[in-house]
Design a protein around this nucleic acid. Structure first.
Lengths: 159, 159
DNA sequence: TATTGTTATACTCTATAACTATA
DNA sequence: TATAGTTATAGAGTATAACAATA
């Protein structure tokens, strides 16, 4: 049927992949929301905490980009995280307009705990064998090079 | 490291899988919204149209279950689809309370077109070879047997 | 003049509660 | 009394526009 190594689009198999993928997405989101809610975090708050814990001190603007949302949203998200003592707004030395977001030790610890729970909560993968998980990871690495992964912050194309 | 065929939870690899999976989910949702918007459909409308095209005539209640949302939502979703002549509300013969949802020929054709575009729009998979797609599908089939796939409609446990 | 962060505002999706008509 | 569908309403998440401070 298909002698080429590269598969055609729109085949029955592609549709089945899409169907499974959408079902998986729904379950992942539901599990994620339940897990972070147990820590009294909204999904955007949990994602922000994770981003900051991984990316280190960054301006509000970069967090907005990392969360793929408008800059006006992060104000409220960071407000809540700051009220709980998980992150801090600090003045940036180079530009007095920007506020540098720093994760506190408390926030760091919570980020680790929350996201290990999220990973555990994805019980889905418990059913996969060691080899299957390795295979899945290899495929995901290849899938993650499409558009949408980058951050279109600058206007000169320098990423 | 891990001699058991079943992998432990919370490992570094599990976290990397989660990370890739979340990034993939974001890109899938963005591509999906863009694609269906080109047909002047909201994501819930597109999902409802697909469900009805696949499941045949069903009551509003079952559609709500299929969409994993409250029954009060489907009223507006079906309103819009009916205004465009894509689906019809018909009286059910057995119970005058229920309304049977039927997809019109126009709706059927649109459902096919929209969802083949959605599959195409997931350009992500174009980069996967034929063998890789087959492998992915096998994994997805295994992943799709977790909770959340069922419909908890009845009260006597009869599905 | 342009940019950072904020505020005000509106729109969408979703859930809860109250209502009707049937059963 | 319980259920199917509808309506009214509220909440969360996100986007646009206008603003103040700074570059």
């Amino acid at each position: 049927m298909n002698t080429d190594a590269r598969a055609e689009v729109g085949s029955e198999r592609t549709e089945e992949i899409i169907e499974h993928l959408f079902a998986l997405v729904d379950r992942l989101r539901a599990a994620f929301e339940t897990t972070v809610a147990a820590f009294d975090l909204s999904p955007p708050q949990a994602k922000a905490l994770r981003y900051l814990a991984h990316a280190g001190p960054v301006p509000m603007r970069e967090l907005a980009c990392g969360l793929h949302c408008d800059a006006s949203n992060v104000t409220g998200i960071v407000d809540r995280l700051e009220q709980r003592g998980l992150v801090e707004r600090r003045a940036a030395p180079t530009d007095r307009r920007v506020k540098s977001l720093v994760v506190t030790p408390t926030g760091e610890a919570l980020a680790v705990e929350v996201w290990s729970r999220v990973a555990d909560g994805a019980l889905t993968f418990v059913g996969l064998t060691d080899d299957e998980q390795t295979t899945l990871l290899m495929l995901l690495r290849r899938l993650d090079h499409g558009p949408g992964a980058a951050c279109w912050l600058s206007r000169d194309g320098s990423v």
